[in-house]
């Protein structure tokens, strides 16, 4: 089987400081991978390099495109990469404000990606947007309301709907449940799990919350100082961590 995403030797430096160094892994269709580590461990840098928001200093990010098979997204042209960004890729920001247009209605937010790929039938766009609001548990009556009138959890769900409406195959998530109440987090996690399963999505989730990766991720990478110190099955890494830092990370979590 061809990996959906094959990351090879990704390195990003900020001057003398290392953002991330020599990160490699393969992600297969339907897999969800978590990346954990403390603040500054390089996990967000890595995510942004993979998603095309940052240009790495070295390495390849090979994506199995629908039309041309595996292509290095770092060296592909910007229009092609941006096209991927609104079709086969999705990016869920930690802060919904960064991923939504706050001055545009919920329906317009969800419809934007459809219009970006050429849909020109208002009725169809609106019907799809409304359907997606339902799938992320937002009442259809809110379709014309702006996200500024939504709660934090609703905004995050709207961001997810906006990202998934074009049926992407790979979703990048940066602390998707950060900043939300615990009860809202739980609902969001369940929603994401269902969507990942039903749509056969692959996902890469960056978080510092080990509970989030335990529930969502099949695989886990632990990063420290820009390097991957341990990788494996999520429950194996969490229950039987091998590296000193992973052991410290796991033992630092408060038990409730």
């Amino acid at each position: 089987m061809t990996p959906l995403l094959s990351v090879q030797g990704i390195t990003k430096r900020y001057g003398a400081h290392i953002g991330c160094a020599d990160v490699s892994f393969d992600l297969y269709p339907g897999e969800v991978m978590g990346i954990v580590g403390e603040s500054g461990s390089g996990k967000s840098t890595l995510l942004n390099c993979m998603a095309g928001h940052l240009t790495p200093d070295a390495g390849q990010v090979v994506f199995d495109t629908r039309t041309d098979g595996p292509r290095d997204t770092i060296t592909m042209s910007e229009p092609e990469r941006r096209m991927l960004g609104r079709t086969d890729w999705a990016f869920v920001h930690q802060h919904a404000r960064d991923g939504l247009r706050m001055g545009v209605s919920a329906g317009g937010n969800v419809g934007e990606r459809l219009m970006a790929v050429g849909e020109r039938h208002y009725g169809d766009i609106r019907a799809k947007a409304t359907d997606w609001l339902g799938r992320v548990e937002i009442d259809a009556s809110r379709v014309d309301d702006r996200p500024t009138t939504f709660s934090g959890g609703m905004q995050q769900r709207l961001q997810i709907a906006r990202n998934l409406v074009t049926g992407p195959r790979l979703v990048f998530m940066d602390e998707p449940t950060g900043g939300l109440d615990v009860s809202v987090q739980a609902r969001l996690l369940d929603l994401l799990r269902g969507l990942v399963r039903d749509m056969g999505l692959s996902a890469i989730i960056v978080t510092h919350d080990l509970a989030v990766v335990r529930l969502l991720a099949d695989r886990l990478m632990v990063m420290k100082s820009g390097r991957v110190v341990e990788a494996g099955l999520t429950d194996q890494v969490l229950d039987d961590p091998q590296h000193a830092y992973s052991q410290l990370l796991v033992s630092s979590v408060l038990q409730v």
Binding site: G232, D235, Q236, D239, D240
Partner: peptide
């Protein structure tokens, strides 16, 4: 048992 499940390395 956890080793057999792959939960422990």
């Amino acid at each position: 048992m956890r080793m057999i499940y792959g939960n422990y390395l």
